[in-house]
Computed example of a mutant assay.
Amino acid sequence: MSLDVEFICKGGFGSEAEIDVQLRRVFPGIGGTIYTYQAIPVAFRREFSSSPNVGHRLFLKHAIIKKLEDYFFKKGFYHYAHITRPLGSTSEGYIYEWAFGSDVFPWYYSDDSGESIPVELDDWRSFVEAFESAGIDLKKDCADPDNGRLSQNIIHQFPFGASVSRPKLNRLWKRIDFGDKSVSIDFERLLSYLERNEADMRENLRVGRFEMIKLSCKYLIYGEKMDPREFGELTMLVRDYRLSTLSHLNTRGVESSGAVKLF
């Protein structure tokens, strides 16, 4: 067993990928490999697709969504983060924070007469509407295809307290699975959103994050045809984001911790 990457268990699989749960101290990815002092519980999503750089592309897709959430959060659209942090990538898959909790809860209850009572998931409507305004559909693929009354791709961290008489679940949940079959991005609408809100996003996000979002969009649209100078800039911006994110996670739960290192 490597001290840098410890396999914990299988975390599930779908039509596009399989997930390993790991404790990890080494994080390869765009901008270089980063080592953390503390091991971090993560998901490694290994894609079934043989498309070139599929892992890096999914990392960037996830990063766009996460940084948009940071903006929505700062603006007060909702008040609990529902997107995990992407942390690294390889050509075949990518790494993100593991979301602890239950992967199934009911979207509907049945009352004594058999009538379906919809369950209100706190923050869900605000969350979906915020991303929809930017051309990203996060409500897609969130119901079990074999039983639409049950959820999927939402990890609820405390799925208790709801009932027929009180059909409401709290906001302690995370949306997962950003594969192409689960989450679609309308890049024309997203780029238009970025253009309309550029000044406000720059004011509310850390320096460089707006550029990272925009250049990530360009890479996902143009791939290897992207201007090499812009790709070089994207690489540096992603490295800064990953160093910042992993530095934060590296100190979570401990009084002090060694610094993260870039190799």
Rank of each mutant, 00 (worst) to 15 (best):
F7H: 14
F7K: 12
I8H: 08
K10M: 06
G11L: 12
G14P: 03
E16A: 15
I19R: 01
D20P: 01
V26N: 09
I30T: 03
G31E: 09
T33P: 06
I34A: 00
I34V: 09
Y35V: 13
Y35W: 12
T36R: 00
T36Y: 00
Q38V: 12
I40N: 02
I40H: 09
A43I: 00
F44Q: 13
S49Y: 09
S50Q: 14
S50K: 15
G55R: 02
L58T: 02
F59L: 13
H62M: 10
E69M: 12
E69I: 10
F72Y: 13
F73S: 03
K75S: 07
G76I: 14
F77D: 04
Y78S: 06
Y78R: 06
Y80L: 15
Y80D: 12
R85Q: 11
L87C: 09
G88E: 10
T90F: 06
S91T: 15
I95R: 08
Y96S: 03
F100L: 03
G101Q: 06
V104N: 01
F105V: 02
D112Q: 14
S113M: 08
G114W: 13
E115L: 14
S116D: 02
P118D: 04
E120W: 07
L121P: 09
D122F: 06
A130W: 00
E132L: 06
E132M: 02
G135T: 11
K140R: 15
